[in-house]
Amino acid sequence: MNRFGYSRAGDVAGAVRERAANGAAAFIAGGTNLVDLMKENVARPERLIDVTRLPLRGIEEREGGLRLGALATNAEVAYDERVRARYPLLSSAILAGASPQLRNAATTGGNLLQRTRCYYFYDTATPCNKREPGSGCPAREGVNRIHAILGTSEHCIAVHPSDMCVAMAALDATVRVTGEGGERAIPFAEFHRLPGDTPEIDTNLGRDELVTAVDLPAESFPTHYTYLKLRDRLSYAFALVSVAVAMELDGGTIREARLALGGVAHKPWRDREAEALLRGQAPSPELFARVSDATLRDARGFGGNDFKIGLARQAIRRALSQAAAGTPQSQTDKRVQ
């Protein structure tokens, strides 16, 4: 770890001011991603601004939905009675991620901003455009089993590793941020970016901006939902492919449907055209196969991750039928039904 200075932010304005004044300073919350990256010398902040004492830990009712404070831990959100009852998709996705110890420390804001687990990004002995812009992307020709199949660029094929974010994307959450210019709200779909030719930039958060909360809208999908996560072992492993589905059925037809994928792109992946195929239709295996094929129409592998295309195709169909039937994937009994 490099040597760095430390300060404890007393209020949001002070935290933002300090970060704006020092481009080499970083916010730290649960520390479960940043401390790890600092130990690997991938992140070398000059100064850490500890935001954990800011009053941003609450989970509050708001306009029929919920506001999750940026410092609410992953465990607090997943086990909150209102989240469990009204947004079980979010609770399920969080509980599918990391470990209980990590979820006790990890925060909502930190989870949004966690960085990719690409092996080359972590290994400072290799080039990596995300770590060192312009140095190249060894993953394209190298070991790329965990890498993206959608939305890649010639500069980077990394994936965003979060489970929580996949559910938030499906729920059309909003990220609330505060910077020197004041507050703003960023629709979830616009928060994370595709790599394009600037893979070093993961999100559209401004350099001086602090995430203060994530707002969940009133529409919560309490019955027809699932979070299906497929990985190399049954727990405590990042997703190879994950699928979040939220549906609202009206009699025998699908009134509203959301489909978000994790582990396949640089951001939680949503395809609104493919989702639209579901609306107004009766659930059926043929319909789900069509939607799955449409979602993956532009998917491409890089050798080691070719298997993800077939895996995602099956996972989407299975998740859609789990959600339609109201039989969500259990995060304890790992059998996929």
Binding site: Y6, I28, G31, T32, V35, D36, L48, D50, T52, P100, Q101, L102, N104, A105
Partner: peptide, 13 residues
């Protein structure tokens, strides 16, 4: 009272 991985916690925090 809450379990955490002490390797990822900075003591000062």
């Amino acid at each position: 009272g809450v379990r955490m991985n002490s390797c990822l916690q900075l003591a000062v925090m």
